[in-house]
Design a protein around this nucleic acid. Structure first.
Length: 929
RNA sequence: GCCGUCUUAGCUCAGUGGUAGAGCACUCGCUUCACACGCGAUAGGUCACAAGUUCGAAUCUUGUAGACGGCACCA
């Protein structure tokens, strides 16, 4: 069989995925072994609005590597895919579309039509990311694909909500919340980010006292003793002057001498006709600003708390779109909050009450998605108390160390610290797209929570009810993802058949039992609190099981500039472009090679390296296939007696290296050290297999030596298996072409399935096949060849010139070199070997030493004596440096007394070896004269 | 303010209580019949700085400097 000269990833990528998917290779049902252990992962559901980015590509690669690896090990494997309904994102897309196509607002068309449109949008555009995942080669079970708004997942949401409500863990309350005036919805704390504004201002406003104190008399003792002159106003500082319209008090610290006698008095709030009290509260820091704080309980979380302590009115002066409401007064009503701010400042200036304006660097809360400045505002919302669930999660961590984070530092500590300081979770959102809150109100505003409207009506005693118009935070439903995706609805079969006609029967009723707990979760730092922690808590709370044992937190893929990839920075790299340019497999294995948990700068050159690696694999296979006529993969060819004593050194060596690599790759994957696994495979394949083994075997293979050919394609076949989880397309493509492959090579759990490398056994590696002696001897041969090549290169001797190589070595090593004479001659491009106890050569020879031999190449007429002296001196210098270090160490009595015996012995042996080598080289130098 | 991470070859990054590694780039040589997306041979680092623990520190501890991340606060 003849392959193209270079690997073309496109063809392989187009040829295999569809077959894998339609053949059911991705489903757990492909596993015929009833005793098989399970392995399961649920995907972090990407937003339906999403497009594949490098973070996905990295996480998906990790998940697919593990899934394919476990599947090949014979586990009953399930990687479950799906998407998230992404409340705000979809809502925004549909609003835009509506505006563009029909020039209408959601209110124009009403909730029902809007939601229908959102579903249409989802059906039309929501599968971008799932198609991109197919391109990635992700071996997810598409027959179990889920969406957070599927009927059964929605039922789970309602049941969780109702249960938590019945337990008193969900409540409705008036609180200061984060409000996005653009999206017109409340946000949880985690959806609010911070932005530093350097050109912020701090405004000092004067509030006149209602009863200005007389200059003399009327003042208390304390006040008379201070140096501060009495004045007829109190100055407060604020960054948000417009909120003064909602002030209901001014607070000072009770211990602040300056203000002590003002406490209890009142001020006349400018621009309003209100008189508000001056109160004392420990919240106020006397050192900061003027030491007096305006209190706006309806527009600031701290002020809200102060207000509660002092029983202050809560005056809301803003509408939910960020404009001022009637409470702000006729002069301000309807103005945008920032226009109102300017106007308030102007008015204060006119009244002579603006003391000063300072430049002030301020950090503003902004909406994570639209970057609009978030307004803290008093609003009635739904909340979840987190105390009980927080304790569940903390107990899991403290008693079982679950989830086990990888890397453990720093994530375990960050996660735990966050849990310890957890506050209530705002779960209502003022959107139409999502899970509508299962709460209904009667005309008097009494609330009835139920799984269905009928249930709520029944609870109300048959009243006419209206459902709460809000939906739940998207993360509420994704928090159930670890178990809702396996069919958990919160209701048993009987209840289901009784109540929910729209629910089709679960085709996999055992999934929950079988696949939960999942084995691990792979995700990014950014959603550790939003999603990971909540899934831990909710899963434990509602199933009693843990959600996942391990949690792999990937680093962030940064742009070439070292900053996180983002549209605004325009430093993003599109995975699809990388796929097109270098191939999916090259991109995948590159991503695996950088998956250390640390942040990583994207580097095209890295992908190119693995594109080259893919080509190397292709060409090594090409070479084997060109000569494989009549041969077939046969695993017996690399087992004893084929590799017993007396057989070819390079065969014993490559089999040992193969097994060692397999063992180490498995160990690395067990520890989620993907980069280690990749590095092992890269160097085994390129260095050991291609550079040495193929080169050593080339003649035998091209001459049609059957045993050698069978052995080399067998080793290749095993190498391809190890590479398969990382490079699925290339390895499948080549494996199918290898003679002798077929489903007879499958893992026994898959023996009935159609032939594919993905269902073969992942090589476990055999400790018994590790042959230290052969590796040592082969190392000696390799060192020898390298020294000869060095002589040739340094002396500028053409490969056309053949020469003899003289070798002096121990009797044992003489035997090794003699046994491998033809191979040494071939790779060193030498003509003959002269092996003995000593070197016996003409003065005009180039010489060198290895750890196992001294060698010389007679070069009459070709040698450059000056260069040869330089060469020898270089080698002497290097070895002497090492020996000086050793001498120092070994002459240190503390070291000899306290270091482990083997260590001391090891250094002594090396010292002796160096002595010999240096002496030899010095002699060589002398003999040149 | 609190917690944490990072600083290793020109670049991007691994790594480890006991002689410093890779890829790329650089230098030299090669149309060697699988591969120039290749082959062969070199060169390149007091592992940020300082002190400590240790027989031994680039690796552990503390401090300093710089880069960065999370959380809290921000009248």
């Amino acid at each position: 069989m003849e392959l193209a000269k270079a690997y073309d990833p496109k063809a392989a990528e187009e040829n295999h995925y569809k077959r894998w998917e339609t053949s059911g290779f991705f489903t757990p049902e492909i596993n015929q072994n009833t005793d098989a252990e399970t392995f399961s992962i649920v995907i972090p559901p990407p937003n339906v609005t999403g497009r594949l980015h490098m973070g996905h590509a990295l996480q998906h690669t990790i998940m697919d590597v593990l899934t394919r690896w476990k599947r090949m090990q014979g586990f009953r494997t399930l990687w479950l895919p799906g998407t998230d309904h992404a409340g705000i994102s979809v809502q925004r897309k549909v609003v835009e579309q509506l505006k563009k196509e029909e020039h209408k607002t959601p209110l124009d068309i009403g909730r029902e039509r809007f939601v229908r449109r959102a579903w249409e949008w989802k059906e039309l555009y929501g599968n971008t990311i799932t198609e991109q995942m197919r391109r990635e080669g992700a071996s997810v079970d598409w027959t179990r694909q889920r969406f957070t708004m599927d009927a059964s997942l929605s039922l789970a949401v309602r049941n969780v909500f109702c249960t938590l409500y019945e337990e008193g863990q969900i409540y409705r309350g008036l609180r200061i919340v984060n409000w996005c005036p653009k999206d017109k919805t409340v946000l949880s704390d985690l959806e609010v980010k911070e932005e530093t504004k350097k050109d912020g201002k701090l405004y000092y406003l004067r509030y006149p006292l209602s009863e200005p104190p007389a200059v003399a008399g009327g003042l208390t003792q304390q006040s008379r003793n201070t140096d501060k002159p009495a004045s007829d106003f109190i100055t407060v500082a604020t960054t948000r002057p417009e909120t003064m319209l909602g002030d209901t008090a001014v607070a000072v610290n009770g211990d602040d001498e300056r203000y002590k006698d003002l406490v209890g008095k009142t001020i006349l709030l400018p621009l309003t006709d209100r008189e508000i009290p001056i109160i004392a509260d420990e919240y106020v820091d006397a050192e900061f600003g003027t030491g007096a704080v305006k209190i706006t309980p309806a527009h600031d979380p701290n002020d809200y708390l102060v207000g509660q302590r002092h029983d202050l009115p809560q005056l809301l002066v803003m509408n939910m779109d960020g404009t001022m409401n009637p409470e702000a007064g006729p002069a301000f009503e309807g103005l945008d909050r920032f226009v109102a701010r300017e106007k308030v400042v102007e008015e204060f200036e006119k009244l002579g009450l603006l003391e000063k304006v300072d430049d002030y660097e301020i950090t503003l809360p902004v909406c994570e998605r639209c970057k609009t400045i978030v307004e803290p505002i008093l609003s009635e919302q739904w909340f979840v108390k987190m105390d009980e669930m927080r304790d569940l999660a903390l107990d899991l961590m403290r008693s079982e160390g679950v989830p086990h984070f990888s890397p453990q530092v720093p994530h375990e500590k960050v996660y735990t610290a966050w849990l310890e300081n957890l506050k209530d979770w705002t779960i209502s959102r003022q959107l139409w797209w999502g899970h509508q809150i299962p709460a209904w109100y009667d005309e008097d505003g009494n609330v009835f929570v139920g799984r269905t409207e009928e249930e709520a009506v029944a609870k109300s005693g048959g009243k006419k009810l209206t459902q709460d118009s809000d939906v739940l935070d998207t993360w509420f439903s994704s928090g159930l993802w670890a178990f809702s995706t396996f069919g958990w609805t919160g209701q048993n079969e009987d209840e289901l058949t009784a109540n929910s006609s729209q629910l089709t029967a679960n085709p996999h009723p055992n999934d929950l039992e079988e696949f939960l707990p999942t084995d691990l979760l792979v995700t990014g730092r950014d959603i550790m609190f939003l999603w990971v922690s909540r899934m831990v808590m909710l899963t434990k709370k509602f199933t009693g099981k843990i959600a996942f044992n391990d949690c792999v937190i990937t680093g962030t893929v940064l742009g070439k500039d070292g900053k996180p990839m983002s549209k605004s920075r325009n430093n993003g790299v599109d995975p699809i472009e990388m796929f097109d340019k270098f191939g999916v497999d090259a991109t995948r294995i590159y991503l695996a090679s950088i998956a250390t948990g640390a942040d990583i700068r994207w580097n095209d050159v890295g992908v190119e390296t693995y594109r080259n690696f893919a080509n190397k694999i292709w060409n090594a296979t090409r070479f084997c296939l060109m000569n494989a006529v009549g041969a077939a993969v046969d695993h017996a060819s690399i087992l004893p007696p084929a590799t017993a004593d007396g057989s070819d050194l390079s065969d014993k060596w490559i089999v040992s290296r193969l097994n060692r690599t397999a063992i180490e790759v498995n160990t690395a994957l067990e520890k989620y050290e993907f980069h280690t696994a990749v590095s092992l495979l890269y160097h085994f394949f390129w260095d050991d297999f291609c550079d040495w083994y193929i080169e050593l075997k080339k003649d035998e293979i091209t001459n049609g030596d059957k045993a050698s050919t069978v052995r080399i394609i067998t080793i290749l076949e095993i190498a391809l298996r190890m590479l398969h989880p990382f490079m699925p397309y290339l390895t499948e493509d080549l494996w199918l072409k290898l003679p002798g492959t077929g489903n007879t090579l499958h893992n026994t759990a898959y023996s009935n399935a159609g032939a594919t490398i993905m269902l073969t056994q992942f090589p476990p590696g055999d400790h018994a096949a590790i042959d230290e002696r052969s590796e040592r001897e082969m190392g000696a041969v390799i060192d020898l060849i390298k020294r000869v090549r060095n002589i040739r290169a340094e002396m500028n001797i053409s490969t056309a010139v053949k020469f003899a190589v003289h070798i002096a070595a121990s009797p044992e090593m003489q035997g090794v070199f003699a046994a491998n004479e033809s191979q040494i001659l071939k790779l060193a491009k030498a003509e003959s070997l002269v092996i003995g106890d000593t070197l016996n050569v003409h003065r005009a020879s180039a010489k060198a030493v290895t750890n196992d031999a001294a060698l010389a190449v007679p070069l009459e007429g070709l040698i450059d004596f000056e260069k040869e002296r330089e060469r020898l001196n270089n080698q002497i210098t290097k070895l002497t440096e090492e020996k000086t270090r050793l001498d120092g160490q070994l002459s240190n009595t503390h070291f000899v007394e306290r270091a482990p015996l083997e260590k001391v012995q090891e250094l002594r042996d090396r010292q002796r070896e160096l002595d010999g080598q240096i002496a030899t080289l010095r002699n060589n130098l002398t003999s040149l004269e």
